[in-house]
């Protein structure tokens, strides 16, 4: 054994920034996450050159998965041009030499914060969702050790009670985004702060979804063809945001999740939240040759 055998040629950083040992740990944990859908697997979560809470969990997954031919799309709030999405996309491209795209259909890997695109993802695509708080029980139990025990016991009584109390008090479940959902009939998970509109897109989908919380150091997954069922009572059905009837003032697209833009006169207009879907609608309207993929929602309804 010599010193030179212990070392390696100097390089400023490994391919994809994170080193081999970090990648192997990510790989091992991703496999376990797929094997037990919806169950939070702890991982070391290395520090990356971005602040915690800014997508470091999703980034570590993306950096582990990419190779120079992986076409990467990054969105934040549904938009490719959001500044942090632009920053993450630029970082991945610069450390891994990946091509990037704005088109959902062209992407091999989509890293997203708070949205799932409107076009249906196919089996060769992977969705990586950034997760701020991986623990659906945090609201009823902030202590992580106790919450973990509750998952182990499938003890979700307090979660149900909380939903019930909301219905009694407000006439409906008040959960906005991050709607707690039962995965494969066993683990309750947070789907990350996607709107309720997007949760059904995880149910029995064709693509693999990996959810990763860098700051909280937890990773979990929803494999294809896996049941993801929002927690609801039999007599109070799951209710997505009332956006089915809204029309995008820029693209004319109708029946998709919208951003509300307040106006000076006190009213609001709406624009489609999936920015690239909006762009496609505009280009199609202008007579351009554009491929619009099939969407999960049709006429504002998600087929069962």
């Amino acid at each position: 054994m010599t010193l030179s055998k212990l070392t390696k040629p100097w390089e400023a950083m490994s391919y994809g920034f994170i080193d081999g040992s970090a990648k192997r740990e990510m790989r091992r944990k991703m496999l376990k996450a797929v094997a037990v859908p919806g169950c939070q697997m702890p991982y070391a979560s290395r520090e990356v050159p971005m602040a915690r809470g800014w997508g470091t969990g999703g980034l570590q997954v993306s950096l582990t998965l990419v190779k120079p031919t992986t076409r990467v799309k990054v969105i934040d709030q549904g938009a490719d041009d959001s500044v942090n999405a632009a920053s993450i996309r630029r970082f991945i491209a610069s450390v891994a030499g990946t091509p990037t795209t704005l088109d959902t259909l062209e992407a091999d890997l989509i890293q997203s914060r708070h949205r799932i695109p409107e076009e249906i993802m196919c089996e060769d695509q992977i969705l990586v969702l950034q997760v701020p708080n991986p623990e659906p029980l945090r609201g009823v139990q902030p202590n992580m050790s106790i919450a973990r025990q509750m998952h182990a016991d499938a003890d979700y009584g307090r979660m149900w009670l909380q939903l019930y109390e909301q219905i009694v008090r407000s006439g409906r479940v008040m959960q906005g985004a991050s709607y707690p959902s039962l995965v494969h009939g066993r683990h309750v998970m947070t789907p990350s702060p996607i709107p309720r509109w997007d949760v059904p897109k995880l149910h029995m989908s064709r693509h693999l979804t990996i959810l990763s919380a860098g700051r909280e150091k937890r990773i979990f997954a929803v494999p294809p063809f896996t049941r993801v069922e929002p927690l609801v009572f039999d007599d109070v059905p799951y209710q997505v945001e009332d956006h089915a009837g809204l029309t995008c003032y820029r693209s004319g697209a109708k029946g998709f999740f919208m951003n509300e833009i307040p106006q000076d006169d006190g009213s609001s207009v709406y624009e489609v939240s999936d920015s690239e879907w909006g762009v496609k609608a505009i280009r199609a309207k202008d007579g351009e040759d554009v491929i619009q993929g099939e969407t999960w929602y049709k006429d504002g309804e998600m087929p069962q």
């Binding site: 602040a51 934040d76 709030q77 985004a177 709107p195 509109w197 939240s273």
Partner: peptide, 24 residues
């Protein structure tokens, strides 16, 4: 690093989650 990162992450846009809560 975790606490400061999470604190400043609130500067990021949250309009999708906000919209979702407004709806409810």
């Amino acid at each position: 690093v975790e606490s400061s990162g999470f604190c400043i992450h609130f500067k990021l846009p949250h309009y999708v989650t906000f919209q979702s809560s407004l709806d409810a």
